[in-house]
Design a protein around this nucleic acid. Structure first.
Lengths: 211, 211
DNA sequence: CGAAAATTTGACATGACTCAACTGGAGTGG
DNA sequence: CCACTCCAGTTGAGTCATGTCAAATTTTCG
């Protein structure tokens, strides 16, 4: 799974992609755009390596230029719980911990070689000071993340594991090619064994799902 | 439960409370403060009445001056799921729907007579235009809400109903005096019957909890 | 190729749900 | 002020989805 070898990404390409993203949300001058881009670092996170590990105090966030990541947290019983998968043009990081200025609770790991544009807390503070209109973008980012999480929460408490599974593959039809099954189980909030059984039953009952 | 008769609240008192809240997050001039306050409406929502009902397109939010509310959503099977309870100095509203400009998915109901300062989308837009620095406050608001929801999500997927119950009464020791037990069950994501049984078992096993 | 990891399968345990009945207190109207 | 209704809460019996533990099988990858 997730075996794509990272095609090389140039800084110019990455900048262009991020700027497109920002422009669609807020209007900036050329100087402002340049100022912002200077505060981002282009990095390659290799497959299975981490961008953020629980306990980190760096307060970094990143924009995914190309690749796939998973954001998860480890509970007291050492069980992993995937919060979400990050794809191209998504942001990853532990906004909650940045907000509270506490060590990261989340881990962000690359599922394949992944190019990101990351920024530090210092960088974002400079951006917000020099380009106050970026407050708006980050507000919208937080609201959007909130909306996604709220939807996820309701689905978790009101739908069965099977319904959640169907919703996931409907929303990300190729997810099973990108991430391992035990990680999907973790996202769904069930054990890998349960997901395996569930899929077999669904096939037996011809409830679709390709063999 | 929740039988407090609303003590009268004057507009001046409510304004003062909101301004204290805002001042602790962002610096404003007197004109800006006045401009903001003008866009808020002081309202009394009587016990069991609604501030927002699912389907509303008003995109309102409110600051709770005094009282208690519950924010819940109704799933396809007509089951209620409490997302959170709102107390004094909290904001209530469906930020996710405002973000997506879709009808509210949430209901916000007063559990006792409750005074709120509400604002409409138009009001907030005017505020953001005239006082851009308020973007910052709303960004922080969204991030804080996100942090709370993220914690709640992880607790829901990684802790048992009993652990969640203990966490709730630890965080809100007097919650059982404020809201009905079936609403607490709804918050915990279990049925009232299950909560009732759980409490009995905890008492039998002397795991504390007053009789 | 061979070790390690992922997935599948089996047998069994259990927490929470479902449905249904009962209890008790709060509010209402005669 | 009592009778009645209504709703919240409790209790019981049976079911089901998912977890637990353990082992077999397949896939991945060095």
């Amino acid at each position: 799974m997730a075996n794509t070898n990272a095609t090389g990404i140039t800084r110019a390409q990455a900048d262009e992609q991020l700027i497109q993203y920002i422009r669609s949300r807020v209007n900036l001058t050329n100087e402002e755009e340049a100022f912002i881009l200077e505060r981002f670092t282009l990095r390659l996170i290799e497959k299975k390596h981490f961008f953020i590990q629980a306990g980190d105090l760096l307060f970094e966030q990143a924009f995914i230029v190309q690749g796939t990541m998973r954001v998860y947290y480890l509970d007291i019983k050492s069980q992993e719980h995937v919060l979400y998968f990050g794809f191209q043009d998504w942001w990853v990081g532990d906004l909650a911990s940045i907000q509270a200025q506490t060590p990261s609770q989340l881990n962000v790991q690359a599922l394949e070689d992944t190019w990101i544009l990351s920024f530090t807390q210092r960088g974002i503070e400079e951006i917000l000071q020099f380009v106050p209109s970026m407050e708006r973008m980050f507000r919208i980012m937080a609201q959007r993340t909130l909306a996604v999480l709220q939807k996820r929460f309701f689905l978790t408490v009101s739908a069965s594991a099977e319904e959640r599974y169907l919703e996931l593959i409907k929303r990300h039809p190729n997810i099973e090619q990108l991430v391992a099954q035990h990680q999907i189980a973790s996202y769904l909030g069930i054990l890998p064994e349960s997901l395996s059984r569930m899929k077999r039953q669904m096939i037996e009952q011809r409830k679709q799902v390709k063999p």
